[in-house]
Design a protein around this nucleic acid. Structure first.
Ligand code: FES
Ligand code: FES
Lengths: 128, 128
DNA sequence: ATAAAACAGACTATATTAGTCGGTTATATC
DNA sequence: GATATAACCGACTAATATAGTCTGTTTTAT
């Protein structure tokens, strides 16, 4: 039940992009890395995943960098966490084998309220 | 964001105790282990933790075993998960150092709704 | 006495996380 | 068109956490 550093870094990076969001403006990773105190090489891997989930886009070459794929208002914490973290709290074996497990309803409920909580927060709220 | 097998086993064991709950009845671990298909040695460690959190009590010696410390109605999934799992989704360094981190509100909200969800379920509901 | 059970701690094996490193590709600028 | 910048990619390592085992000690009903 822990959020990985990867996800924490990822969210912070996204908030950074949202805070400074401006049309046609891009942010090189080096800048985000320094400003948010995130290991550069690690952040590179993280942002790649975010890009593959269509949350950020990149511009290559000099003066290149990353930028949000859409308005901060339209990106939720759920999107970000979902892109970087296993979001199902359990991946159980017995359920499949035996059909029923009394604990299942607990995990289902947990998963749902987790999702609800994260989906209800968007990036633009986090810039204030 | 994954629930450990330890916690899954722990919850299943507790549900087992709740299902067969009866005054003055105790259940040896061997029985729970077999019935719930949980590795005995591992279960031993798990139930010890549950005992230290005052969720179960033990009777030693022959015909001994474990039993719920109180009525199933009074024990929540939150109690059980809380006893076996780190319940805070993040344990961040920067927060302490720099005071403010935009991501913090996300994790706070997550933690709260996690807690609410689990606390709202009690063992007696899970026996049906 | 003895056998059944809880209790305890040290140990191992596996998996996940966190991060690093060496290189390739695309592109703006000179 | 050379060069520098920054994204992209895959393989690797180190550290930590999880899952489980093993060997024993203590308590207690019979
Ligand atoms: S085995 Fe799937 S929830 Fe219990
Ligand atoms: S460092 Fe604590 S929530 Fe960001």
């Amino acid at each position: 039940m822990q959020i990985s550093k990867k996800t924490q870094y990822g969210l912070r990076a996204m908030v950074y992009l949202a805070k400074n969001f401006k049309r046609n403006k891009v942010f090189p990773l080096r800048e985000i890395s320094k400003s948010e105190d995130i290991p550069f090489d690690f952040l590179e891997k993280i942002i790649l995943e975010l890009e593959k989930s269509d949350l950020v886009k990149a511009k290559k070459g000099p003066n290149g960098g990353y930028f949000l794929a859409c308005s901060p208002r339209k990106i939720t914490a759920g999107d970000i966490v979902g892109a970087l973290e296993k979001t199902k709290p359990v991946n159980c074996l017995i359920c499949g084998r035996m059909g029923k497990c009394s604990a299942k309803s607990v995990w289902n409920k947990l998963e749902q309220s987790l999702k609800d909580a994260l989906d209800s927060i968007n990036l633009s709220e986090l810039t204030k």
